[in-house]
Amino acid sequence: MTTFKLIINGKTLKGEITIEAVDAAEKEKIFKQYANDNGIDGEWTYDDATKTFTVTE
């Protein structure tokens, strides 16, 4: 398992979430669903070196 981080830079929601997953593709799906469930629609980036997804509205 690898630890992945999501950084949220939303208009109404900001924060960080850290979760373990098998791979980045699995985690991306979970993070995007979390963002969608919380009304966050923005630009996504991924840094493989730090295993960090960022979504910015």
Rank of each mutant, 00 (worst) to 15 (best):
M1I: 10
T2W: 14
T2L: 12
F4D: 05
K5Q: 06
I7T: 02
I8Y: 07
N9C: 15
N9V: 12
N9K: 07
N9E: 04
N9S: 08
G10I: 14
G10A: 05
G10K: 04
G10S: 10
K11D: 04
K11E: 06
T12W: 12
T12I: 11
L13I: 13
K14C: 15
G15T: 15
G15C: 15
G15F: 15
E16Q: 09
E16M: 11
I17E: 00
T18E: 06
T18Y: 14
I19Q: 02
I19Y: 04
E20G: 06
E20S: 12
E20F: 13
E20Q: 12
A21V: 14
A21Y: 07
V22S: 12
V22Y: 11
A25M: 09
A25P: 10
E26P: 04
E26C: 12
K27E: 09
K27R: 14
K27N: 12
E28K: 04
E28L: 14
K29N: 11
K29A: 10
I30T: 02
I30W: 14
I30Q: 04
F31D: 01
K32P: 02
K32M: 12
K32L: 13
K32C: 15
Y34K: 00
Y34L: 13
A35G: 02
A35F: 12
A35L: 15
D37V: 08
D37A: 11
D37Q: 08
N38Q: 10
N38L: 15
G39V: 06
G39H: 06
G39D: 05
I40L: 07
I40P: 01
D41Y: 14
G42M: 06
G42F: 12
E43D: 11
E43I: 13
W44H: 00
W44A: 01
T45N: 04
T45H: 08
T45Y: 08
Y46F: 04
Y46C: 04
Y46P: 00
Y46R: 00
D47E: 03
A49T: 09
A49R: 05
A49F: 08
T50Y: 02
T50K: 03
K51L: 05
K51F: 11
T52N: 01
T52P: 00
T52R: 01
T52A: 02
F53Q: 01
T54M: 07
T54C: 13
T54E: 03
T54K: 04
V55D: 02
T56V: 09
T56D: 03
E57S: 10
